[in-house]
Design a protein around this nucleic acid. Structure first.
Lengths: 326, 326
DNA sequence: CTGAAAGCGCTAACAT
DNA sequence: ATGTTAGCGCTTTCAG
């Protein structure tokens, strides 16, 4: 159906190898011959079959990216940064959403590996990544972003300072006079959520009260119920620390009208335009994705040093909501 | 380096073809033999080389998606919908950002076609898609979403009712007493922007005043400058119709503090939490992406009927900003 | 139920 | 400057 190099070769009256040379811009082809070949390519609508090329050369020039959700504001920005670096290195990015499901995550990685991606960038959903062993051994490097791999898998990681950020957020609220600070976070099985709880707890010291902690999937109805429960306590919270962007959104909606101090982990579009502006602990998803991709390409160009573990800083952006008094 | 079917075959003491049968779940293999093969696969960490398979079979089970920006809230949601349908059909999605650059768009499509995607879904950036001819002729179907292809390319399209939506938005403001309604849109070369201008103009009739129209790339500084210019007119606008999500964000920031009626094209997260809430004309990016993918798979399963052209409805969501008086 | 041989479209290695 | 040959890892076809 589609024309092959062979077709182009006979159309141009040359050998197949000459077409290959022209297509790949290899030197040593007479300009006139090259022109005839190009003309035949144009006329036949030829395009090189990458599968055949890959089969022969062994490198696919692709990178696989697994994230939780391609449509999530945080992860899509991270993914975009990965794409930019990947493209700059002449590679194509394959990406997929794991939906926070370890089974789907593994399936995606398997698919990517079957397509022989040159490397993997993973925001893990599961807690066991031993299934990566054969791929790593076969020389396919992997970089984990946002969350570390399960035990026994020693690869490059790019994380942010989750505990430190949570400590900053909590201290920020403490310094504005709050003593009853609630934490609404994601499931404790998620590394970032656990680390943020840790930082929050450390900053609170003996002010910590487990009745002011809710950790669950960011389903609006459930988060709201937990919040309502806390607000009905004898000594209800006067401030909220929300553990990720999605939970911050939910909390903002649940608080609707009620004036309550709030600091959220993760920055988001329009946080500055709400009244009051929403104080956040901001990570930089663009840097995270970009650095992860750079690390991967460093491995691809032969770096075999010990696994690197980057921890990116976070910063508090005060906008009003975190500075409200109790 | 990596084990092949041949390696598995000799490890299991069978012929290569038997391994192939087991890997592909083909019938006619003795259970005991199959078990030995599976054991060898496990032990060697074998995974099928998809490139070789594709080369032989001719189908890649991949779909290529070109959008403007993977990190854009609108397009990332559209892309996610495409991913879900693609996955449901057992295919992998390849996606890339065109950055609204026709050259990059063409390059991406070329890359996808070289990888022999089974089909293409495109949010076009350019105005000429004749380069798709050879691919379409070779049997690679394409579906255009959000914007139509350039002339001469007759493929399935999924658009929204841009002019109708703009008319609705403009009439909404008119019905609330506004007579000086400005339009801030994207470059007129972009189909959606042109159609929205058209609807706006049609709704205004002789109230139309070209001094109240600004069409340019959504760069905050520039949009703000145009807005300031309009506000300095003898009879300044009392209401704004913003032509897409990014321009709405910019306008909201530029208006900061100033109370002015506004209707935006495209819904966005938190539009309901701003004060006043932002009235929008909402499209449904999930439906758009999903329908486009469904159309594509219908083609892939053999439908050769005439090109379909879906036009999805839009709806006004009143939230306050569009109901402010002049 | 199992296997041997051919070949998908390309590139690497080696002629000429 | 150009061509020939072999083979990447798999599936297809045909034989046992």
């Amino acid at each position: 159906m589609r024309p092959t190099m062979k077709d182009v070769a006979s159309a141009a009256g040359v050998a197949l190898k000459t077409v290959s040379r022209v297509v790949n811009g290899e030197p040593g082809v007479h300009p006139g011959t090259a022109e005839r070949v190009r003309e035949a390519i144009e006329r036949l609508g030829y395009s090189r079959n990458e599968s055949a090329r890959v089969l022969r050369r062994g490198r696919t020039s692709t990178v696989g990216l697994v994230i939780e959700d391609l449509a999530d504001p945080f992860y899509s920005v991270l993914g975009r940064a990965v794409e930019d670096v990947t493209t700059a290195h002449g590679c194509l990015l394959l990406s997929g959403s794991s939906n926070e499901d370890p089974v789907r995550e593994r399936e995606l990685i398997r698919t990517f590996c079957a397509r022989r991606v040159d490397g993997l960038i993973v925001v893990p959903a599961g807690e066991d990544h031993s299934f990566l062993r054969p791929e790593l051994d076969a020389g396919t490097p992997a970089v984990f972003v946002d969350r570390p791999p399960g035990p026994g898998v020693d690869v490059d990681t790019v994380l942010c300072d989750n505990a430190g950020g949570a400590r900053l957020a909590t201290r920020h609220l403490l310094s504005h006079g709050h003593r009853r600070i609630a934490f609404l976070g994601d499931r404790p099985s998620i590394h970032t959520a656990a680390r943020r709880l840790h930082g929050y707890r450390a900053a609170l010291g003996r002010l910590f009260d487990e009745r002011l902690v809710s950790m669950r999937a960011p389903v609006p109805r459930d988060v709201r119920a937990d919040l309502d429960r806390m607000l009905a306590l004898d000594s209800p919270p006067t401030a909220l620390f929300t553990g990720n962007g999605r939970i911050t959104m939910t909390a903002l909606r649940a608080l609707e009208g009620r004036r309550m101090a709030l600091v959220g982990f993760d920055d988001f579009e329009l946080a500055d335009l709400l009244r009051p502006g929403v104080t956040v602990v901001a990570q930089d998803p663009t840097s995270m994705g970009g650095l992860a991709a750079e690390l991967l390409f460093r491995r691809l160009s032969g770096d075999t040093g010990p696994a690197e573990h980057l921890r990116l800083p976070v910063r508090v952006i005060p906008r009003g909501s975190g500075e409200l008094p109790p």
